[in-house]
Design a protein around this nucleic acid. Sequence first.
DNA 1: GTGATTATTTGATCTATGTCAAAGAGTAGG
DNA 2: CCTACTCTTTGACATAGATCAAATAATCAC
Lengths: 190, 190
Amino acid sequence: MLPADALLLHIGQYIRVSEPLRTALLERVQAASYNKGELLHDARRVCTRSDFIQRGLVRLYYQHDGEKITEYFSAEGEWVNSPNSLVKQTPDIYYLEALEPTQTLSLHMRDLGYLFDNFPEMERYARLSMGSVFGHLMDRITSLRFTSAREKYEHFCRTHHDILHRLPLGMVASYLGITQETLSRIRAAR
Amino acid sequence: MLPADALLLHIGQYIRVSEPLRTALLERVQAASYNKGELLHDARRVCTRSDFIQRGLVRLYYQHDGEKITEYFSAEGEWVNSPNSLVKQTPDIYYLEALEPTQTLSLHMRDLGYLFDNFPEMERYARLSMGSVFGHLMDRITSLRFTSAREKYEHFCRTHHDILHRLPLGMVASYLGITQETLSRIRAAR
DNA sequence: GTGATTATTTGATCTATGTCAAAGAGTAGG
DNA sequence: CCTACTCTTTGACATAGATCAAATAATCAC
């Protein structure tokens, strides 16, 4: 299995990957790796890449009153970037941090532009894959509005079963918008 | 000013609208109008159109424990649809309701498909315009997590200044994820 | 206009979760 | 193996906002 196979598979869920597209992609992706704690992206810079996670775990976070607030977690088979910064080429508030040793395949701005310009199906892929993230964001909003801390945690366990045991409790609490203490008490009472 | 001018303007913010695209669009959009209280879309059906609001005000809501929960408001110059239902062609939980007499230009599924297939720049338009909604959703999540009821309301006043006076209080409260009573008390103390 | 809905306000509780503080557990480096 | 972090748990207390209930006020249909 080529290292890029997972990536092609992901794209293949949304569009047919023609031979020329496949070639163009493979020519342009670049492998990179990060240690635990290293930043894939720093809020003080403009985001110039999108990284596809081959192996590892990443969180998107931002600073709020000196606290690091986790916005979401991404693992194998997902793209990470700072969405607004990437599209508008201006800085934004988000950091990307490797929570484990992480390997990525990345596409630079310029190459993304090339692919979008020359392969209209890549535009479609981007549109459709964004669509699924959309649904998650809307569910998340519902969850923040109407569910108790316990329900939030139980929902998280269901939806993030695979990565739950890889995450420190404090980050999960901040993702859920509750305090670490509350989450600890919830877990105790079971 | 042609009725469709606002629509072309909106698209023109993201891509250049070529003459053939302009023609294709104008041939396919359909005008419709709705009375106050009428549904533009019903959750019991599959969403088959995207509606661009020419005049009026629409809310997206869903049922939760017998309550109608407002997910967002859209006014002149915005697209409304049930995103997931439209893309996946399966039912979803969202209703679209006209809060005022509303005129729309709508594009049917099939025509959207035609435009996406024949005008790659329409894919780009969809991708980029979705991107800006993205940012709003992320801000919304932050607001739900960290701000008091009063701050939520003040933020809403700032960001929805133009439509604030057109909205019943109960819907605003449900949008903000607080109770009507709390919102009423907040407004009293000023 | 008038009666009937529907929306908003006000009041009196109640409770989930936050805050502050400190003690235990785990883990990594020397 | 020990020291120094960092992470997690536990306790006591405070409070924003929910809930329940009822009184006004506004709007709509006839």
